[in-house]
């Protein structure tokens, strides 16, 4: 059961985390690396923050455990998005897209572009 409040925007660590899980299931360290890559190195999830967020997202039904395996004598638990998780991410992406589109529209209205500048030597426009 999904108990997350989708009416409010997701917080950045949560958004980055579920974005990192959207294309493929990943384990803990891969998630840390992927979040850093998605954010262009701006956000570096600490292990404590990562597992705190994963616990919450597991409880909310947004993330599930895909599989467990032992690699080089280290336990790897791989996480994946649930259907509800994909819905939450799609809703957030839609919200961000709407805001970005509106921002671009208003930038176009407010800032005089090349088409609005007076033509020189009778050229342009």
């Amino acid at each position: 059961m999904v108990t997350v409040m989708t009416e409010r925007p997701l917080q950045e660590p949560t958004l980055l985390l579920i974005t990192a899980l959207a294309d493929a299931p990943r384990h803990g360290y891969a998630l840390i690396q992927e979040v850093a890559a998605i954010s262009g190195g701006r956000v570096r999830l600490r292990a404590g923050t990562l597992y705190g967020a994963l616990d919450r997202l597991l409880g909310q039904g947004i993330v599930r455990v895909e599989r467990e395996e032992v690699v080089d004598s280290r336990l790897r638990r791989t996480y994946a998005l649930t259907d509800a998780g994909y819905e939450v991410l799609a809703a957030e992406a839609d919200r961000l897209r709407t805001t970005a589109r509106e921002a671009e529209r208003r930038i176009g209205l407010g800032r005089p572009g090349p088409a609005l500048r007076p033509a020189r030597d009778g050229a342009g426009a």
Binding site: H27, G28, Y29, R46, A47, G48, L50, R74, R76
Partner: peptide, 26 residues
């Protein structure tokens, strides 16, 4: 075991200073 494995991955790839920061976070 899973968290210890993640810390070990970080130790291998990023060095002891990274592990100290991660240990504080954990």
């Amino acid at each position: 075991a899973e968290i210890a494995a993640t810390l070990a991955d970080i130790a291998d790839a990023e060095g002891r200073w990274a592990v100290r920061r991660e240990t504080a976070a954990v």
